[in-house]
Simulated assay, not measured.
Amino acid sequence: MDNSDNTVATHYWRHLDNDHVVCTLCPRECELREGKRGVCYVRMAQGGEIVLTSYGRSSGFCIDPIEKKPLHHFLPGTPVLSFGTAGCNLTCAFCQNWDISKSRHMETLSAAATPEQLAKLAEQTGSRSVAFTYNDPVIFMEYALDVAAACHERSIKTVAVTAGYINPEPRREFFAGMDAANVDLKGFTEAFYHRICGGHLAPVLDSLRYLKHETQVWFEITTLLIPGENDSPVELDAMCRWISDELGPDVPLHFTAFHPDFHMLDKPRTPMSSLLQARDIAKAHGLHYVYVGNVHDVKDGSTWCPSCGELLIERDAYRLGTWALQHGCCQHCGTKIPGVFEDYPGKWGPRRLPVEIK
């Protein structure tokens, strides 16, 4: 790829009969005239095709605990080198990374790194994985996949933190480069997706089915509970029933607390009672691994054996305590716990460490 000016060709697009080009990366299928950008901001019509304009550029690099993604069943306790770019293909009114994902300023992309530099930095810092996060990596998939390839050459794993809003053909290519994913299931009604997120529910459900039934990618699901918007018992019951029926009981589900942000400053914070109600509904549908997040709750942030009920992985604000796994199994009763585990947890803890490419 020629990325000397941070612009590279893409191949998910088609011509219309007029002078417009349609980007076919995601269900939005933006129809663009020459020089115009899609809703995601980083994909643009240029020279009769769609190009990515942010290749090799980032809003910054940081080493996080893997639990922050959140991933609770993927190399617990290990550090993950995290970065994002600018823009997003959804328009969520509640976005909690809005300064990055809603940015329309290339100055946001103040850090530069080649895929090889990122893989080397991950290796040098002891990061076991690299996460494409802060904004949705599907919109910069060409860059993400090149980084993934460079990481895999060094035995470093890759993580996508994504809303799963992507068309089937690019979805196959994108997730083929990922070892793990956290998929943001933002709600469970078409009305919520359309009114609040500027998208549709069905493509996200299709992505979840695809991950479960057609890939080896380890994935977990997160739903941010917004008071009065997506937290009704009826909606949560329908969502948890769908997860149980379509994905099975072993996909970890994270219910996280909302705080007022972006265009939803008038909404209150999520009360603990709502998180616990959601947890109870999920458990009633037989889901084995249900977590609450963005609050301090050691019990409901920890992993418990679904067979014998014993504590397996204790978590306190990204800090691990009790570890009762042996070869990925409960050391008390031998039940196999789904996920990607090693014999011993990492020791990164809750640190968040900004890093620079030199």
Rank of each mutant, 00 (worst) to 15 (best):
G48L: 02
E49M: 14
V51C: 13
V51S: 01
L52G: 15
T53P: 09
Y55K: 05
Y55Q: 02
G60A: 02
C62T: 14
D64T: 01
D64R: 04
D64V: 01
D64Y: 09
P65Q: 11
K69A: 04
K69V: 14
P70R: 12
L71A: 05
L71T: 07
H72E: 13
H73L: 11
F74D: 08
L75H: 13
T78M: 14
P79H: 11
P79E: 13
V80W: 02
V80I: 14
L81A: 10
L81D: 07
L81V: 01
S82G: 11
S82L: 08
F83V: 01
T85R: 00
T85Y: 03
A86N: 03
A86F: 14
A86W: 11
A86Q: 14
G87K: 10
G87S: 13
T91A: 13
C92K: 06
A93S: 13
A93P: 02
F94P: 03
F94H: 13
C95T: 03
Q96C: 09
Q96A: 01
N97L: 08
N97P: 02
N97F: 10
I100V: 13
I100S: 08
S101I: 01
S103T: 05
S103I: 05
S103Q: 05
H105A: 15
S110T: 12
A111N: 09
A112M: 06
A113W: 03
A113H: 07
T114N: 00
T114C: 05
T114H: 06
T114Q: 06
T114F: 00
E116V: 05
E116Y: 04
E116S: 12
Q117W: 04
Q117K: 12
L118R: 06
A119N: 11
K120H: 09
K120Y: 01
L121F: 04
L121H: 08
L121N: 00
L121E: 00
A122T: 07
A122N: 10
A122R: 07
E123G: 10
Q124G: 01
Q124K: 15
G126F: 11
G126N: 12
S127L: 08
R128I: 00
S129W: 03
S129A: 15
V130A: 09
V130F: 04
A131F: 06
A131E: 06
A131H: 07
T133N: 01
T133H: 05
Y134K: 03
D136Y: 05
P137S: 05
P137F: 04
V138N: 15
F140K: 07
M141W: 14
M141K: 08
Y143Q: 01
Y143L: 08
L145H: 01
L145T: 06
D146E: 13
D146W: 00
D146H: 11
V147L: 03
V147R: 04
A148Q: 08
A149V: 06
A149C: 02
E153A: 15
E153M: 11
E153H: 12
E153P: 06
E153I: 02
S155K: 15
S155H: 15
S155G: 02
I156F: 08
K157A: 12
T158N: 10
V159N: 10
A160H: 09
A163P: 00
G164A: 11
G164W: 03
G164L: 03
G164P: 09
Y165I: 10
N167C: 11
P168V: 03
E169Q: 13
E169R: 13
P170F: 07
R171H: 00
R171K: 10
R172V: 14
E173I: 06
E173W: 03
F174H: 09
A176V: 01
